[in-house]
Amino acid sequence: MARQAASGSVRGSRSGRPVMALLDLLGRRWSLRILWELRGEPLTSRALRTACDEASPTVLQARLTELREAGFVELGEGGGYGLTALGRELCEMVMPLNRFAERWKPSPSPRLRGRDERRSR
């Protein structure tokens, strides 16, 4: 990630600003979920896949590689993945957003409720 920002080429941004690189990485499918699941303790690939609702092993490994290259995740001696100090710091920064989301929890809009009701029939 740092290499992307330094080179000026960040997916979805012409500026190459570090915040854009971070948001791009965190916005990729499963990235935040992986970090969230690792916030408590290291997990093996299999345990992480189970925690991530059986995410595709290919996608999961791609995200783990990206998160490792970014310095947020590391492969431990026992073979499990865990957060680095930087990864723990990032998770601490996300916690206020999680608390806000828990308070916010909107009920689905009438338009979305109708769609959900049609699916359940």
Rank of each mutant, 00 (worst) to 15 (best):
A6S: 14
S7D: 15
S9V: 14
R11H: 11
G12M: 04
G12W: 04
G12Q: 13
S13L: 06
G16W: 08
R17I: 06
M20H: 15
L22K: 09
L23I: 04
D24H: 10
L26H: 06
L26P: 03
G27W: 03
G27C: 00
R28S: 06
R29V: 06
W30C: 03
S31F: 01
L32Q: 14
I34F: 03
L35W: 03
L35S: 01
L35Y: 05
W36G: 11
E37G: 04
G40R: 13
E41T: 13
S45E: 14
S45V: 13
A47Y: 12
A47T: 15
L48T: 03
L48I: 06
T50K: 14
C52Q: 00
D53Y: 01
D53W: 06
E54C: 03
T58D: 09
L60R: 03
Q61G: 11
A62N: 15
R63Q: 13
T65D: 09
E66S: 08
E69H: 14
E69Q: 15
E69K: 14
E69R: 15
A70K: 07
V73M: 03
E74C: 05
G76W: 01
G76M: 07
G78C: 12
G79P: 02
G79Y: 03
G80H: 02
Y81N: 09
Y81S: 00
L83R: 09
T84F: 02
T84E: 01
R88G: 09
E89F: 00
E89G: 15
C91K: 06
C91S: 11
M93C: 15
L97T: 14
L97F: 09
N98C: 06
N98T: 13
R99A: 09
F100K: 09
E102C: 08
R103C: 03
W104D: 13
K105I: 02
P106W: 04
R111V: 12
R113G: 12
R113I: 09
G114F: 05
E117H: 11
R118N: 08
R118A: 10
R119A: 00
